[in-house]
Design a protein around this nucleic acid. Structure first.
Lengths: 203, 203
DNA sequence: CACTTATAGACTGACGGTCAGTCATATAGT
DNA sequence: ACTATATGACTGACCGTCAGTCTATAAGTG
């Protein structure tokens, strides 16, 4: 076979991207290392030269996803033209109404083949996104919009709860139930953050 | 080889129990079907006669665990000598201060090898335990101890959030952080359920 | 400077080992 | 005889390893 040598950074990125695409289409479990290397056009050894296991490339991929997401959130958080509530609104909207590639992913993440990927992503989100959100909440505290003591921990809890329950793939809720769930969530968030009743009715 | 025929129900239970023990000691991923059958002393085919896949025995095992747990909760819920707050207290205590076999399990569930098992258990708990808890909350609503509209959905959310965050195996929190997290959780629960501030300080 | 000779880093793919799951066959109970 | 149980050798799909190859660049050498 012809040998093509590339800049290591590029190679790594190529493999990671190919893997990501396969993960989305077939799910992590059903994506074989052989499929990944075939897609990239490299040998088995090359894969293991860059990633020490199949699990490691999953983790790397999750990290890259979260990093991207985190950037968007930081942009919103640091935008001084927005009010606190407006920031929160935009952040939550991007979660419940994803765009572009995100929406394709949402569907894929809810399939059982992607349990592992999905869970790891949730964890990573809680670790990296929660602090950004918490910062906004703290700002809200100062502006008397919110009234919470442990902003970070509260946000983590709320993120965990909503992530877990919105998984329509795992729990196959009825439409009506889903509505009640959203209402409950809205109240929980308002009360937990010490926000005015109805201030989260945009959900 | 000597053939031993047993009552199918017994056989099934034997296999299930052996599997459970191995799951606890080595984790689900690292438990091979071969290990299970060796422990029970049956052939490969026998295993697949009773369970159509390795995944199926996991699901069966999770169900049996949840069923047991659910019984205990129902007993508490239906005990008319207990006050609403007392019921809630007992139910939550058994989660955060487990006893006997449960405590061994807690440790095991938090190990990464048991991700799958742990997640499925969480899901099953939300589906089966939440209704029992919700029933108690509704009782509390009538007695003016709580004030929530969608009891079931709220309980599901709170369960999901706490389960996810108490996973010290996934997130390796510092002691100090853990305390803040517990405080935050306490406030979230009180506010979400519309309970008196401090009424959950037993946590 | 041209010209060999190391060294490192990227890359290869055959191969080993592990397991979940299958199947043809055999035996106990009725 | 007939059905429900039980057996274990076998298959095939995958993950991960390893001994070794190829290329480019640096270091010695005359």
């Amino acid at each position: 076979m012809k040998r093509i040598v590339k800049d290591p950074t590029t190679r790594r990125a190529e493999i990671l991207e190919a893997a990501g695409e396969l993960f989305r289409n077939q799910g992590y479990v059903h994506t074989t290392v052989d499929a990944i290397i075939q897609k990239v056009g490299v040998a088995k050894g090359t894969f293991y030269y860059y990633f020490k296991s199949k699990e490691e490339i999953l983790e790397a991929f999750v990290q890259s996803m979260v990093d991207t997401l985190c950037e968007e959130y930081k942009k919103i958080a640091d935008d001084s033209t927005l009010s606190v509530m407006e920031k929160v609104r935009q952040m939550l909207r991007s979660q419940s109404h994803p765009i572009d590639k995100q929406s394709e992913w949402m569907e894929s993440l809810h399939r059982p083949e992607n349990r592992e990927l999905h869970e790891r992503l949730n964890i990573a989100i809680i670790l990296k996104i929660a602090p950004v959100l918490a910062q906004v909440i703290e700002q809200g505290n100062k502006e008397d919009v919110f009234h919470v003591e442990n902003a970070l921990e509260t946000v983590q809890f709320l993120l965990a709860g909503s992530q877990f329950l919105l998984e329509s793939g795992i729990f196959h809720w009825e439409q009506e139930e889903q509505t009640k769930r959203l209402q409950a969530m809205q109240v929980i968030i308002e009360r937990s953050l010490g926000a005015a009743p109805g201030s989260f009715s945009f959900l």
